[in-house]
Design a protein around this nucleic acid. Sequence first.
DNA 1: AAAGAAGTTGCAATCGATTGCAATATTTAA
DNA 2: TTAAATATTGCAATCGATTGCAACTTCTTT
Lengths: 330, 330
Amino acid sequence: MTVYDIAREAGVSVSSVSRAINNKPGVSKENREKIRLLLQKYHYQPNEAARELVTSSSKMVGILVADVRIQHHIEGAYHIAHELANHGYCSLILNTGRTEQEHEDAIQTLGRRNVEAAVLMGSVFESQTIQAAVLHYLPNIPIFMLNGFLDLPNVYGVLSDEKSGVEDCVQLLARKGRRSIAFFVDDPTPSSLRKTQGFQSGMSALGVQAEDAWLYRQVEGSVQGGYEATRRLLAEHPGVNGLICSLDIIACGAIQAIHAAGKRVPEDIAVIGIDNSIYTEICVPHLTSLDNMIFDSGVMIAHKLVDCLEGRDSNQKTLLFTRIHERDTT
Amino acid sequence: MTVYDIAREAGVSVSSVSRAINNKPGVSKENREKIRLLLQKYHYQPNEAARELVTSSSKMVGILVADVRIQHHIEGAYHIAHELANHGYCSLILNTGRTEQEHEDAIQTLGRRNVEAAVLMGSVFESQTIQAAVLHYLPNIPIFMLNGFLDLPNVYGVLSDEKSGVEDCVQLLARKGRRSIAFFVDDPTPSSLRKTQGFQSGMSALGVQAEDAWLYRQVEGSVQGGYEATRRLLAEHPGVNGLICSLDIIACGAIQAIHAAGKRVPEDIAVIGIDNSIYTEICVPHLTSLDNMIFDSGVMIAHKLVDCLEGRDSNQKTLLFTRIHERDTT
DNA sequence: AAAGAAGTTGCAATCGATTGCAATATTTAA
DNA sequence: TTAAATATTGCAATCGATTGCAACTTCTTT
């Protein structure tokens, strides 16, 4: 079914049909009605490719998700997609995989699909390669970054101040009388770098020597990973009485390992996770966690995106404040 | 940058450029090379809308996700998207919301975007309305359903035998000496209906009267929901010694409520969840859970989809067997 | 009743690719 | 050397919409 078929059967020209479809003036009442009935009768759906070709507007937005394991990213992506659907936009969600090459390919794909905006979810997109790719393939559309930023005129970023967030965690532990504090961090991304910096500056603010700020890098982001790292920690530093984990799920594994070693949480070791995810209320005791506002960032990005597509303006860089949700592990 | 620009600068016709881009025969070595260099120089990307219009193949697949909260659906969707990306297809992932109207709209959208196949994730798509919508808007493309099926020639379904799965759960509890068993079920979807049937037939196979098979419907799918329902259960049926929950997360809440009431898991009450999700190893004790193969279904759908797009044939309906992962709550 | 304004209508060009076909160039075979 | 076979090339149509423009109605207004 094309506009031509409809036009023929209605005994009018394609222009009239097109105008009727798009509710534009220039069609008489009777013809409008005649056309409306035919559209309905044949379940006519316009061919978006043809439409896109002539109007050069695709009504699509690209969303790149780097790490599927982070629930908040996923939910954020779906939230954005849903919000956009309400405004007549389709979301092209691409799961980009791990390598920079894959990220670049994904950006290229968005370019050729003529998306009208792009969302990059995850701090891994904060890199030179991506910056270059954006310049090449998406120079003219707004780019929205979750938990990241690139210094380009068309880039909008929503970030949370993870560094001070982790500093706050250290201070909270200090207030609870803990000074032998360890930090578990997962994959080396810009985001975990910021968290690590927060840990280090927080500890040195406490007057703790760098070598006594026990930093465990590349802890696997899973219950198992947290469990194993904690066993190592307890063996290497039996005096530890505070622990901060870059992911809630790692903290869940840590709690289990601490219990398995016959120690109590929080009496012997206080634990703080990061993300304030659903896991915090599944584990027992319920996990104190730093809310890094990932979900809120997603919501905010959805807003900014809609604003932008509808011609309203907004800040290029938004910094959100983090907040510790204190539960039963501190 | 269009093929015309490239053609002009290379001093050849657009046909040659097009053929060169698509690695088709009919272009001399020298011209091929000349064109290749120009494409590279200008970071040329073909306009997919134009391509789609003439070839009427969009290289896009639609994925509808009904319930974002189910981690396995999400991960399945991303898995499928990733697999398809390796075969040159883009995924249009739509988060459809709750109402049938939204589902229908989403299917309409897929139609007008000319997707070459569609994946419907979630049993909620197993309905008359959707069947009609598919007939109207997607009559000619293959449809892949996860945990659901429609009796149409172009529909492929991968389902797990949830009914017998839940029957098995009942039997497992029975073997552990439990006969006072409750079942918590969340939203009324075709899937939870099958689970409910499994519970009922399993219980009657044990010779338990229907009124003694304690069925709690519409338990909210959250830790809180499980907690509240369990408090009610313990008040109404203090003798309960077995519990099956339609979602792991509900079971997590249940365990906490049981502990709060001063009872032990599994000694006093054995608990089984469904989904075999990550939550099973976060809660303590680790949750025994029925693996309903949602993730495997996703992987299998990705396979079927690729097979189908590449012209190979496959079964319309695939039934997967479920399996109980016994952990520490039974 | 005539002139002007306002509303309808359809022709034809356009978007950026692909592709069948005819024309031309090149290679091979006799 | 020439005819036949093969390879290269570009013209022009095509996909299905949108839209500016000119032609044509119909309705006001004086």
